[in-house]
């Protein structure tokens, strides 16, 4: 009996060491990133980890101005905004039809989007590049908005559809009996009920568009048009010797998404993980 309780003490201790050790492993680089943004470059170079010995705010205005982050933020917000709006309209209508209406070809469309999720971005990165060139919209925000929207459609559409399937159809049927057409039913009955999931989807699209790097780096090469993620990589390549600025620009780049995550973590976590499996 005594032996067993000793074993379970060891087990419990082991368990907690692993749990908090991993938590430290996950959070430490982020905390140190924030701390380093308040340290002068020379101090970071002397020793990369630890609390600031001399707190400084200098890194922030320097990085923000030299890195032209004001411009980059506006660019990213502009791209994210239109991506979210266009995607929500497209997938809102489509997921309603695919969840609530029986029609010929429904199975085909569901299968199409299910398959669409599997198309790797590298398979269309090159041809789309030339397509945009020919359309005369290469190196603009429009091509980012288009490609992000197109890429976001399958996953989020199916996520939305799964949710809408869970709302009993009787509500929509009742509205139709009262004389609503499909669009009216969608706008007046389904949309208000699904407001929350729409917000979740909007957040996911925001996060993905804000964080996206490969496409933005390829399609937009004019400096003043760069979004935050590519601006960050460019800036840290140019100033790769100033660690204060590298860490500060890291904080600036991830702040919007991290703040939203901390405020609405359940939406992020549920949206990202449930869609992943139900596909």
């Amino acid at each position: 009996m005594k032996n067993r309780s000793f074993g379970s003490i060891v087990y419990t201790a082991f368990k907690w060491v692993i749990i908090w050790g991993l938590a430290l492993f996950e959070i430490f680089p982020i905390i140190q990133l924030i701390l380093n943004s308040f340290r002068p470059d020379t101090e970071i170079k002397k020793f990369p980890i630890g609390l600031p010995r001399t707190w400084t705010l200098e890194n922030y205005p320097d990085t923000w101005n030299i890195g032209n982050y004001g411009r980059a933020f506006l660019n990213s917000i502009w791209v994210c905004f239109w991506t979210i709006v266009i995607t929500l309209v497209l997938i809102g209508l489509a997921s309603y039809a695919l969840a609530k209406i029986d029609f010929k070809g429904r199975g085909f469309f569901v299968a199409y989007f299910l398959m669409g999720m599997a198309i790797p971005s590298f398979s269309h990165l090159i041809p789309t590049y030339y397509l945009f060139n020919r359309m005369g919209i290469a190196n603009t925000h429009l091509c980012l908005i288009i490609i992000y929207t197109a890429g976001q459609i399958p996953f989020n559409l199916l996520l939305l559809r799964t949710f809408l399937l869970g709302i009993p159809r009787e509500l929509e049927e009742a509205a139709k009996v009262d004389g609503c057409n499909e669009l009216g039913t969608f706008l007046r009955v389904t949309l208000p009920l699904a407001k929350s999931i729409f917000l979740t989807v909007a957040l996911l699209i925001f996060m993905k568009s804000w964080n996206e790097f490969a496409v933005a780096n390829t399609y937009v090469t004019t400096d003043s048009l760069r979004t935050v993620s590519t601006r960050f990589v460019k800036f840290t390549t140019e100033y790769n010797n100033n660690f204060g600025r590298i860490f500060t620009s890291g904080v600036i780049s991830i702040a919007p998404v991290v703040i939203m995550y901390l405020l609405m973590q359940n939406r992020f976590i549920d949206g990202l993980t449930s869609g992943g499996l139900k596909g």
Partner: peptide, 29 residues
């Protein structure tokens, strides 16, 4: 704990990658 474990997943990989490069810098990391 769930919030902490999940946090790196929402951070831009381009940003996190560069920050880790600084941590792995042979002289100042």
């Amino acid at each position: 704990i769930r919030t902490i474990y999940f946090m790196p997943y929402i951070i831009a990989s381009a940003t996190a990658g560069r920050i880790w490069c600084s941590y792995f810098n042979p002289y100042f990391g």
